[in-house]
């Protein structure tokens, strides 16, 4: 059974990609999935070689044939997304592909057409296989593309006989985050001891309990504001979530990034030794959760 872990944060820029790419360079038997599909950065560090590229089709968009259109306005009245204007042009950014306009048009002047909304990639890196993607500008279906990346990652895991998938998640709590965490074994939440970091951590932990996914927390730049770090620890205790790592404020992530390396390839210092200990801790948790499942299975069989 392939294990899956997603790195999330709520707030952007807390270090998700830095930390997940570091894990990749530590573990042997894994597949990496970059699920921050509208601002994917992992490839900048891992320099993947493409094995396979697939076009991604999201929602369809309405297309009005001006030859047939009599400007009756039925479509305009029926569209709930204000995607058709007075001159019967379709705003492709507003159209959600529901096809109500096509249905109401008495002249059959409207058809729904496929629109390429991005690309998904299966690749090989120096650390193992990687699934990633690029969403087209302003596209609606980021959640669907995240699911595609996760499917590709599972295929890669089967093909290359890997038993773990590490998912670098997007910021926020909406559709792409939900798609990136659904059905995973565990979340690692990267936060920082700032007012925004704490607020967004709370929302992500609510999300994890909403979907009943176990979570652990890592505090990046913990020494920026130690009283906030203490508040985070208290919050986590209250919510029954373990804090498994305190990373110091450090130049290492940026310096490693400038050299297009993961932090562990780049150096060995205070920062990277904490990253190693977080990974060991996570790895133990994943293994022990596997054992728990085994025991439950066995006991249910008995």
């Amino acid at each position: 059974m392939v294990k899956q872990i997603t790195i999330v944060s709520g707030k952007g820029g807390t270090g998700k990609t830095t930390i997940s790419s570091a894990f990749v360079s530590l573990a042997n038997d894994l597949v990496i999935a970059d699920c921050d599909v509208d601002a994917a950065d992992m490839h900048l560090l891992l320099d993947p070689t493409l094995l396979k590229t697939d076009d991604f089709y999201g929602l369809k968009v309405a297309n009005i044939n001006t030859e047939l259109c009599t400007a009756c306005g039925d479509c305009l009245d029926a569209c709930r997304f204000n995607a058709i204007d007075g001159s019967f042009d379709v705003d492709i950014f507003s159209c959600e592909g529901c096809s109500v306009c096509e249905y109401v048009c008495q002249q059959n002047a409207i058809s729904m057409i496929e629109k390429k909304a991005g690309e998904s990639f299966s690749s090989m890196t120096r650390f193992g296989p990687m699934a990633h993607a690029k969403l087209g500008i302003g596209e609606e279906a980021s959640g669907k593309l995240v699911s595609t990346v996760r499917n590709n990652a599972r295929d890669l895991a089967a093909e290359f006989n890997k038993d773990l998938i590490i998912i670098d998640g997007p910021p926020g709590t909406g559709c792409s985050v939900i798609a990136a965490i659904t059905g995973v074994d565990m979340l690692l939440v990267i936060t920082e001891p700032t007012a925004s970091g704490i607020h967004d951590l709370e929302r992500v932990l609510e999300l994890s309990s909403h979907f009943r996914i176990p979570a652990a927390v890592c505090i990046n730049k913990y020494d920026l504001n130690e009283s906030n770090t203490l508040s985070i620890r208290e919050l986590c205790t209250e919510m029954g979530v373990d804090v498994i790592g305190l990373l110091p404020y450090s130049r290492t992530p940026v310096d490693a990034m400038l050299n297009e390396k993961t932090v562990l390839e780049f150096t060995d210092d205070d920062f990277t030794s904490v990253v190693r200990s977080i990974w060991d801790n996570l790895h133990d948790r994943l293994v022990s959760s596997a054992e728990t499942v085994d025991i439950t299975l066995k006991s249910s069989l008995m």
Partner: peptide, 10 residues
């Protein structure tokens, strides 16, 4: 604005 380039940004 929210981060990213997807529909919430637009």
């Amino acid at each position: 604005s929210p981060p990213g380039t997807a529909c919430p940004v637009i």
